[in-house]
Each structure stands twice: as C-alpha cells, then as structure tokens.
Design a protein around this nucleic acid. Structure first.
Lengths: 112, 112
DNA sequence: TAAATACGTAACCGAAAAGTTACGTATTTT
DNA sequence: AAAATACGTAACTTTTCGGTTACGTATTTA
C-alpha cells in the first residue's frame, strides 16, 4: 500500500477527480456522477487521494464533502523543477529558447 | 500497457534511474549496479522509460547507452502548474482564511 | 415510523505490475 | 577460436490495482 502523491496522480481517473474538485467541493456522489464507473470505485479513488493528502473530507450528516488540497502537488512540482535546468539549457533553436524564456518569466511572475 | 509519463514516474525506482541519468549517460549495466534488483528488472524499467520518451537509447556495439530526455517532464510540469493558482492565490475556505487572520492578529498582540 | 439516501466496506475477480531465473545472441576480449 | 561481456526476452510467480456486486449503517425525507 504505497501511498505517495506520484502514485496517486498516475491514474487518469484520479487526475480527473482532482480537476473536478479544483473548481468546487463536491460530495462523493457529486463526484461519482461524472464517471461511468461505480460509486464504490470512486470511493476507493477518493480514499487514495485522501490518504496522500490531495483531498480533504468533511462529513456533514450522511454526506461527505471532498475538497482538493492542491498544495500537495508542490511535491511533484519540486521534483520536476529540480530537473528543469537539464532540459532548458540544451535547446536546439533560438525560437525555442526565447519561447522558453517567456514561459519562465511568466512563471516567476506568478510565484511572486 | 498504459505508457504515459505520469505512470512512468509513479515508480520510485524509475525516478531514481532518472536522477542518475540526469547527471550522466550510462549503459544499462551502469544503471543496474546502483540497485539491488536484478539486471532484467532494470532492463524493464528502462524500457518503460524509453517507451514514454523519458530516456533515449544509443546502441554502440554490445552496449546500450541511456540518456535522460527530461524535457518530457514538461507534460507533468504543465499539468501541475495549471493548478498552482488554486493553492497560491486562493484559499481553500473562508474558515481557513479567518483562522489565518486570527492567528496573525494574536501574533501582533503578543508583540505589543 | 417507513422508505430513501449517501455513503463505507468486504469479498471477489481479472489484468497488469514488478520481480525472478533461465536462456539466447551479438560483440568484445584473450 | 574460446571465453567473457552486455545485453534482450520468455516463462513464471507474487502482489497490487481497479473494477464489480452485495450488504450494512447512519441520516434524512415522506
């Protein structure tokens, strides 16, 4: 039962669930109606996402509200970003270099 | 046989292989000596990484040199970055916002 | 209070993942 | 030419994954 963020986002359905919950908190059934698989299957996916901290659950009566905790994705971001210099420094065209530069600036703008 | 980047980096051993190859090109055996699992096992991991574009292989005689193709990680980066605003500029809930505010006020109270 | 609802979970299943050993083959070394 | 090396791959095993159905339970609605 390896439950890290990398393994959690490996499944396309779990990524889809996250993209739903990024926009709004939903009950478990609220999530389930967007998929053709059964509710227990969704329940399992949500459990996995919860166990690795990508989702937070709040119980209200018989309902369970799922909220995305996307700051957990920082772990993935950090891992990827440590390699960025390895692929950004070797570019095969000036165009790509400039495009990459602009992208970087936008990213920095967002960060601060 | 789902071979996308997300699934490829889900395995911790494959991430370790990538971090080795980020620094230097290695033959398959050159990779294998860093792990306690068997060479065929490494061979399989390398195959998976190659199939999803994270590694490039160059055969020279009986040796196969593996080079990381880290620009493929852009797919992961892009996916994560689309959610950054959700955790950096937006708060998860009004409750958390207010709690954060109170915390800050208490801190100020203590200072004066 | 009875029925409907919103779940969790257990039991089960097939497929895929991750490992092993055994063996084949091309290339290099001696 | 023979031995050693650097692999790939097939066959097999064990776990894990992702799904299902069936059922139990607490809460809400009628």
């Amino acid at each position: 039962m390896r439950r890290d963020v990398f393994q959690a986002i490996a499944d396309p359905r779990r990524r889809a669930i996250l993209s739903l919950l990024a926009l709004q908190t939903l009950t478990l059934n609220g999530v389930a109606v967007h998929f053709k698989i059964s509710r227990p299957a969704i329940s399992k996916h949500v459990k996995i996402l919860t166990e690795c901290g990508l989702i937070k659950i709040e119980q209200k009566g018989r309902e369970r509200f799922c909220t995305a905790q996307l700051q957990k994705l920082d772990e993935v971001s950090d891992w990827v970003e440590q390699y960025r210099r390895f692929w950004e420094t070797k570019l095969d065209s000036l165009e790509e270099y400039l495009a990459e530069l602009q992208k970087k600036e936008k990213k920095n703008d967002r960060k601060k």
